[in-house]
């Protein structure tokens, strides 16, 4: 009897011997998603983002009448891009605080599993090893996307309700492009923190390392860029200023664009502000005959397309590095 039972279960296990990689990845994805949404950490982040968003919304609504006087077109976008007297705008808040979200979601992705002894158990299941890291990254990205889109739409909805403004189609499209950019931007930081979680044994180390990178890009990169630009193209006297100013500016902006923070800010200010017509240095020559007006949606998108590609590439390269690192690492308990 017992033997028969055993046989039956054996044949059952024979049938499931071809495990599909999707099964494991799906299970992992769901588990990670659930973990994120239930974690206290996530609640804190959401709280932070909600508070700052509403503060910036309050600021922009109170400053709206002034903004209206200067330019009465694309007012709805001003809800996102203009701040109050002392409160930064929604877009600049997100540029600064978005990284925190990404870092908080990923800094202990792998090393906490390792130190908790769950990684061993996980890799002994019939799943491909990359499912683990891919599942984690996708779950993090999904959380980020949900958060960003719901926040962005909530800001718009409350803005509509509070001011009575109705967005035009183009404005809606611009807002969605902005939100998409934000998701890619924050996902980059998620990928970076996962990379550190693969490289560092301790969660504290990986958290500190990723915060260090964030602070460097947000604050120090512009200083470094200007120092290097001034060293390469000095502008100490009038003559040098005349000869070097173009090179100096181009080099500085090029170096700044290495920083995802700058890249994102530039792209967002272009897409959310149709009056921005160029993002590089423009000579007087090029400006001759230009009519002051708004850039169409397609043209704005064309301007920031390289930024999008750059951000996505940064995200994918960082994730690729953590992927390779994780796949090559020894699975050991300690």
């Amino acid at each position: 009897m017992a033997k028969k039972k055993r046989r039956a279960s054996d044949s059952g296990s024979l049938q499931k011997q071809k495990p599909r990689s999707a099964t494991g990845r799906h299970a992992l994805f769901c588990k990670e998603l659930g973990d994120h949404l239930h974690s206290r950490r996530f609640l804190i982040i959401v709280f932070l983002i909600v508070v700052t968003s509403f503060a910036s919304l309050y600021g922009s609504i109170s400053g709206l009448s002034e903004a209206l006087e200067s330019d009465s077109n694309f007012i709805f976008l001003k809800l996102y891009t203009s701040g109050g007297s002392s409160i930064p705008s929604f877009t600049s808040f997100i540029a600064l605080l978005g990284p925190i979200v990404g870092l908080a979601l990923g800094f202990d992705a792998i090393n906490s599993e390792r130190s908790g002894g769950t990684l061993n158990r996980l890799v002994a299941q019939p799943i491909y090893r990359d499912s683990i890291i891919i599942g984690k990254f996708l779950a993090g990205t999904a959380v980020i996307a949900m958060m960003v889109f719901s926040m962005g739409i909530a800001i718009g909805a409350i803005g509509m309700y509070a001011t009575g403004l109705v967005p035009e189609t183009e404005e809606v499209m611009r807002i969605f492009v902005f939100l998409f950019f934000t998701v890619v931007y924050i996902s980059f930081w998620l990928a970076l923190s996962i990379l550190f979680s693969v490289l560092c044994r301790h969660t504290a180390t990986s958290a500190l390392a990723s915060i260090a990178v964030w602070i460097f890009f947000a604050i120090f990169m512009s200083l470094v860029a200007s120092i290097v630009a001034n060293a390469v193209y000095p502008m100490t006297n009038d003559y040098e200023a005349l000869v070097n100013s173009m090179g100096n500016y181009t080099l500085e902006i090029g170096m700044n664009r290495i920083s995802p923070y700058y890249l994102y800010s530039e792209a967002v200010s272009t897409i959310m502000n149709p009056t921005v017509r160029a993002i590089n240095a423009v000579t007087m020559d090029q400006l001759v005959g230009a009519i002051s007006g708004y850039l169409s949606f397609g043209q704005s998108l064309l301007l920031v397309w390289p930024h999008l590609v750059g951000l996505a590439a940064m995200m994918l390269i960082t994730f690729g590095l953590s992927y390779i690192g994780f796949m090559r690492q020894e699975i050991r308990a300690n």
Binding site: S13, K16, Q17, P19, G116, G117, T118, N120, R121, A124, Q125, P126, A333
Partner: peptide, 12 residues
Amino acid sequence: KSVVGYLPDNVG
């Protein structure tokens, strides 16, 4: 791995 069960030391 689909036919082998593994109980690591210090299982978590």
